[in-house]
Amino acid sequence: MENPAAPALASWAAPLPLGVAYSGGADSTALLHAAAARWPGQVFALHVHHGLQAAADDFEAHCRATCKALDVPLHVGRVDARHAPGESPEDAARRARYATLARLAQANGLHDVALAQHADDQVETMLIALGRGAGLDGLAGMPRRMKRHGIDFHRPLLDVPAVALREWIAASGTVHVDDPTNADLRYTRNRIRLQLLPALAATLPQFRETFARSARNAARASRLLAEVAASDSETAGLPPTLAALRTLPRERLANVLRHWLRREHDAVPSEAQLEQLLDQIEACSTRGHRIRIKVADGYVQREGDVLRWYNARPPSQPAALR
């Protein structure tokens, strides 16, 4: 039985050398095996030790043994991914994971990292976004390529169903680890994976393909809005001036503010925060009008004729790399 990750990699013009995010789980194991077979000597495994559970040391030991057998260099980054009060544990762990993968890649001269997220992960991401009332960016799901912390992250398996990867793991007897937190129903993504996706499969058997089509349509519309926002940003300036912002219709104003906050500060305002900011900008007709509104983990504040965003989150501790 062929590893289903292999044909996905065969159709991908991978940038080499390539880092592979390797947790030791079934999905990243299938990706690492396929990548090591296709590009021998050009693949480096990157493992994040989250420090969130006692089994983390065992996961690292397993990854070392597997990489030794595959003759793939392994680089490990340790990070404290515990979440702050009021912060989503999933979001905190994801931010820590990407930051650590990027530092590992940079420390070893890599510019590109492949992730093992697959078709089911894409559906889960879209459903989470829909449940949060997200806009087009959220409904577009995960892009095949994105830049974060100066590193290009790639998702070559987005068309591969999870069941195909797991069937290959089982049929081939490939050893992997099972993270017990993946069965914890306190986490939204786990509830979707374990409870909702089986119901979708029974009701809409082609849901992976139709969701993927919707994601592509949303991504196209999102790119168009991004082009409009980029043009408006050139006019508004960085940081944006209130005078220029106030010339824009409300929908374009909302679009350019989202673009500015996300691109320059990695901050995503809630709908309520954005509406409050829009109201304040539209009402800001005098120099004495103050603006200070909470947005994401910080604040948007008026300073003279411009808006600035300040991060209220304390800086995180750097991860140790090995």
Rank of each mutant, 00 (worst) to 15 (best):
M1I: 10
E2W: 03
L9A: 05
Y22F: 15
A26I: 12
T29N: 13
A30N: 06
H33I: 10
R38C: 08
G41A: 11
Q42K: 14
F44N: 00
D57W: 00
F59G: 05
F59P: 00
R64A: 15
A65Q: 15
L70G: 09
D71G: 05
L74D: 13
L74F: 04
V79L: 10
R82H: 15
H83F: 03
R95N: 14
Y98E: 05
L115C: 14
L127W: 04
L127P: 05
L130F: 12
G131N: 13
G131A: 09
G138E: 11
A140V: 08
G150R: 04
G150K: 12
I151N: 06
F153W: 03
R155W: 09
S172G: 15
V177N: 07
T181K: 10
T188Q: 15
R189Y: 10
R191P: 05
L196Q: 12
L197E: 12
A199P: 00
L200S: 08
L200T: 09
P205E: 08
A212V: 04
R220I: 06
A229D: 02
A230K: 10
L242H: 02
L245C: 03
R252L: 02
L253C: 02
V256Y: 03
R258D: 04
H259E: 05
W260I: 00
V268S: 10
P269F: 09
D279R: 11
T286S: 12
R292E: 13
Q301G: 03
R302M: 06
Y310T: 14
A312N: 12
R313A: 15
